[in-house]
């Protein structure tokens, strides 16, 4: 997935940051336990958000200690295995599999090779995940076809493209059987899906324009030198923020117990901050800086 759905760490209380990290380690550990070591590499912030959303209406998860394979010399707190974690882990594998399939189709050269190798490594994990969530896997597959068809048809409406993607996330809401929980979650995930798709399109715009690849923004706006005009950019940002408004309105209708602070932070602060840094073109740069540890 994309990794855009993350909290604004500076605004988190220490205990909430610990809760977030325990969720991350829990998801990674469940991926490893259920789907093998290779699946651990697919752990993503986006699916961590899904897990926090699913478990947010329950009491806080129990904590355990676990050893991180990336830093084996220290123990970390991590959420105990639960239905919500296993569900998020299955979806994580399925969505990564589809994303790699999409990359293998779109990319050229080394990146295509990497995507294919990744798929090879995940094949067994995907089969197992698809066996656990057959409906989700099948409908996800169909939805990818829809996305590709829209791309091939050069559909000019960016909302139609975004919605084809958002539909995939909406499917995840079937985890709740009670309509008063499922409906807000479905709505929330749909709007976050539109946000994700459009933010990703904005992030990739310079690269896609240079390589003359598909990008919904090229069809919708006039793009010069891989950049949107100031007016178009302001229009797009406003439109994306409106999706966040709707996501926030849906979040307020969920009876949250344990996850209130972290979920509020992500929706009200984290997503706008990511949008801002993508709009300024500083998102990937910041990522690289964080990885190199400065």
């Amino acid at each position: 997935m994309f990794g855009y759905v993350r909290p604004l760490r500076a605004e988190l209380r220490v205990k909430t940051l610990e809760q977030y990290q325990a969720g991350y380690c829990g998801l990674c550990r469940t991926l490893g336990k259920s789907f093998g070591f290779a699946a651990r590499f697919t752990v993503s912030y986006d699916l961590l958000f899904l897990y926090l959303l699913l478990s947010g209406v329950q009491d806080p998860a129990e904590r355990e200690r676990c050893r991180c394979p990336a830093r084996p010399w220290r123990c970390r707190a991590c959420d105990a295995d639960s239905d919500a974690l296993r569900y998020a882990a299955s979806l994580n594998v399925i969505l990564t599999w589809e994303k790699l399939g999409d990359s293998a189709k779109d990319e050229r050269g080394l990146k295509r090779l990497a995507a294919r190798l990744g798929r090879l490594a995940l094949k067994r994990a995907y089969r197992k995940a698809a066996a656990q969530e057959p409906d989700f896997a099948a409908r996800c597959r169909d939805q990818m076809e829809t996305i590709w068809n829209l791309e091939a048809a050069k559909e000019p409406s960016m909302d139609r493209h975004a919605d084809a993607f958002a539909q995939i996330l909406r499917l995840a809401s079937v985890w709740f059987s009670e309509p008063e929980l499922r409906r807000p979650v479905e709505e929330l995930l749909g709007h976050v899906g539109r946000y994700l798709y459009l933010v990703d399109a904005l992030e990739d715009l310079p690269k896609d324009a240079k390589k003359e690849r598909f990008n919904p923004l090229i069809l919708r706006f006039s793009v010069r030198n891989g950049q949107l005009g100031d007016e178009d950019k302001a229009y797009l940002l406003l439109s994306i923020r409106q999706s966040l408004n709707r996501a926030a309105a849906a979040l307020e209708l969920l009876p949250l117990k344990g996850g209130e602070e972290i979920l509020h932070n992500i929706i009200y602060l984290g997503l706008p901050a990511v949008l801002q840094s993508v709009a300024e073109g500083s998102f990937r740069k910041r990522q690289k800086r964080m990885r190199s540890g400065t």
Partner: peptide, 12 residues
């Protein structure tokens, strides 16, 4: 209709 679906660009 577009607004209901969350298609903010089409709605506008």
């Amino acid at each position: 209709v577009a607004y209901r679906k969350g298609w903010m660009d089409e709605a506008r």
